[in-house]
Nucleic acid binder design. Structure first.
Lengths: 138, 138
DNA sequence: CCATTTACCCACCTACCTAGTAGGTAGGTA
DNA sequence: TACCTACCTACTAGGTAGGTGGGTAAATGG
């Protein structure tokens, strides 16, 4: 399995934010309840999004989070790369791979590389706005 | 990361068997040495292959393992599905998924499903014989 | 018959990751 | 002042990845 709950939950949070009150602030408590995800766990996943200015939060009553862009400006690939750290199918293609002495002669590396490209292209081609469409089929 | 060392090692073992002495038996000790993989670990990965008749082994001196088909008759997808158990990118698409009550309304499921299809198609379209070609580019 | 070679089987182990929980503090609003 | 919400730190149970160690069973050469 390549995509952990982290990435899947965050994607659902982004869609939820986009669907509810696009411009006002939505408390995470509501999102957690609607999406049936532990609030405490969600809280742990959000910092990576705020630090990268994907969403912004305000404290206090009437506060919460909201998107910083319109839904069509978020690609799924971008979000998944942030939350998953990486979208590499094998260890040797991760951000800081352990040096592998077999790289030059590796008969499987080109296959992994091409697949990584396919995967990134696919997810980069889908936006949050796409996921909100009822007739979206992938 | 979706493909563990299990799948990657096994793929290299299959290629090694195909490249060395196609019809005679090759001891795992030699493969482990050539591929620089722990023999003990490899031994643990092989049963799934023998049980599914992907390779066959004979005991004793002069023994070892060999492929049961010609290299072009093995698809990478088939091998990976055996060793990885599955090629599902998310938990809800695994072989025996936990029932998810949100399936009907899930806005991300079609995306995961299409991706799963793409992935399986890609790896099903590559054979061990392809991986042996020097000009193979994925 | 015996030593050697090989497959094959089983128990165990360590480090790390996943998916949480608990208990706060800081900032903002009515 | 009461309340709400983001935000921060620490902890933890359980599982998985990636092995290691110690054997046994089958086949062969001498």
């Amino acid at each position: 399995m390549i995509i952990s709950t982290k990435g899947r939950y965050i994607l659902r949070v982004m869609i939820d934010l986009a669907e509810h009150c696009g411009d006002c602030y939505v408390p995470m408590k509501d999102v957690a309840e609607r999406q049936d995800i532990s609030l405490k766990y969600l809280e742990k996943l959000l910092p990576v999004l705020t630090k990268n200015h994907m969403i912004e939060g305000v404290h206090g009553k009437g506060g919460g989070y909201r998107l910083t862009r319109t839904p069509e400006k978020y690609s799924v690939g971008e979000i998944l790369r942030l939350t998953e750290g990486d979208l590499a199918p094998v260890a040797c293609l991760e951000c800081d791979p352990k040096p592998c002495v077999r790289t030059a002669e590796c008969r499987t590396l080109p296959m992994w590389q091409k697949f990584t490209g396919m995967m990134n292209d696919y997810f980069d081609g889908i936006t949050i706005a796409d996921l909100m469409r009822d007739d979206f089929e992938g």
